[in-house]
Write a protein that binds this DNA or RNA. Structure first.
Lengths: 119, 119
DNA sequence: GCCTCCTATCGATGAACGTCGATTGAATGA
DNA sequence: TCATTCAATCGACGTTCATCGATAGGAGGC
């Protein structure tokens, strides 16, 4: 770098460009990550179907109902449910032998808006 | 039991299970795929930031503004913009040397609800 | 106590994704 | 015409994801 530019402050030396404009402040990184994580959890057709079932159900839904509804192995369904649970979109509890899932009433507003579209 | 039950034709012979209930009809596969594709396109922090910029901008935004805003290479930014464009969430046009992006006014309602959360 | 049933977890595999450097294509200005 | 600039595409690489089979953990029923 020849230190040359050192002397000249160069008011707007470059800037040949005629289009660049300032842009709004970015979202806080944590917020962008949270939104992206929420939408990533929604970015699978099977999980969309799971949420459709939950959004139209009046009671918690047993895992066995999901495994019966999809042409997928039981571990795969369990994995999708875990993904939604870790994203805070659904919650689960056990009753006897069975595990039940329902929509998380405390899900984020972004997730809520998405579920409203799905249901 | 007194075998008395023997005479009874076993009201629910099989179905040892006590939880499985019918489940709502699935979403049409095409619809589930479309929703999943939309949310998958939204499932990346950089693309969330891109949409935040577009949602808060009053005019179309030049690609050079995006490349300046992110600590990513130009091909990577171009790739993210292409992903959003192929998902129907943004549209682009060229003016002279520059390419501009804006929100697609015809985006799906699911995408619109998501952008409303981001903006 | 043992056996059965249901669900979660583990390990593996193939596909898809995010990122980069290099290149190409298009439009401008000298 | 030629050099310059901007953006899209290509090829490659490492990571993440969806799926499966096998296994483990837990709760009831006999």
């Amino acid at each position: 770098m020849s230190t040359a530019a050192a002397t000249t402050p160069a008011p707007t030396p470059l800037r040949v460009k005629g289009c660049c404009n300032p842009v709004s402040a970015p979202l806080p990184e944590v917020l962008a990550d949270e939104l992206a994580a929420t939408y990533k959890a929604l970015g699978d057709p099977t999980r969309i179907q799971i949420l459709h079932i939950l959004a139209t159900a009046t009671e918690p839904v047993c895992v066995c109902d999901f495994t019966a509804a999809f042409d997928l192995g039981q571990p795969t369904v369990s994995h999708h449910l875990a993904t939604l649970r870790e994203a805070g979109i659904v919650t689960s509890f056990k009753r006897g032998i069975w595990a039940f899932y329902r929509l998380n009433p405390a899900m984020s507003s972004a997730a809520g808006a998405a579920v409203a579209q799905i249901g």
